[in-house]
């Protein structure tokens, strides 16, 4: 009779976490931060078609790092969840917190029960009312851990280095100031990132029902230059 080798649960979990972390660290990072008119998400992404940052609902955005097909699957599930919920109840009933919890459930489930954990870290961002109250940044890790971030968050590999470079925000900055800081933090001291190598989108207050907007390369160049 074949007896399986005993492996301690601690070891199993550690191996899975290491595996997921390694996968995530292979990709490029992104920074999300609150600015005066909403939330900006700035990702290093050379592709202009395979997106890391997307719209989920009127005031909710999604961002993912790690393995593209895995976080894109989660993104689509999020869009479906939000649209179904808005259809069944009302648009005002769709919120980031419940979506973040759903993501956490799925990621936690896959982490413990499947062969392979998802090699992703995702962000669910929502802007609140017009006075800036109720802006939310939910950072969800590969094992289902949810962190409710306050002003800014870094996703991906080398998060600590990038967070240190970005620093703590003292109040909400203007969009251009925040972006300059985020781009410097992402690029580090040895290189510089051009707008073509970045994917930037904002959830901006006062832009109508759908608050999500992508910034194109010329707009980013204009914002960052002066």
């Amino acid at each position: 009779m074949n007896m399986p080798f005993y492996v301690a649960p601690e070891q199993v979990m550690k191996d899975r976490a290491d595996y997921a972390r390694k996968g995530i660290a292979r990709g490029r990072s992104l920074i999300a931060f609150r600015f005066v008119d909403g939330i900006a998400i700035c990702a290093e992404n050379k592709s202009s078609t395979l997106r890391k940052v997307s719209e989920i609902y009127d005031r909710i955005a999604f961002a993912g790092v790690g393995k593209y097909n895995e976080f894109d699957q989660l993104r689509i599930a999020g869009v479906r969840h939000a649209d179904l919920k808005g259809y069944a109840f009302s648009r005002g009933d769709v919120d980031a917190r419940s979506l973040a919890n759903q993501y956490a459930q799925i990621l936690g489930q896959i982490f413990t029960h499947e062969m392979k954990p998802m090699e992703v870290e995702i962000l669910v961002a929502e802007i609140g009312a017009d006075d800036g109250d109720g802006d939310q940044l939910f950072h969800i890790l590969y094992d289902g851990t949810v962190v409710d971030e306050d002003t800014s968050v870094v996703l991906g590999g080398e998060t600590e280095t990038i967070s240190d470079r970005f620093g703590e925000l003292d109040g909400a900055p203007e969009l251009a100031d925040g972006l300059r800081r985020a781009i410097t933090a992402l690029s580090g001291p040895d290189r510089s990132l051009t707008p073509a190598e970045l994917e930037i989108a904002v959830l901006q207050r006062g832009t109508g029902r759908r608050a999500f907007r992508r910034l194109d390369d010329p707009e980013v160049a204009g914002l960052v230059s002066d």
């Binding site: 599930a77 969840h81 799925i106």
Partner: peptide
């Protein structure tokens, strides 16, 4: 309301 996840062969697109 749970997260709507589908297997590739019955994905609604």
């Amino acid at each position: 309301m749970s997260l709507p996840l589908f297997r590739p062969h019955d994905d609604p697109g």
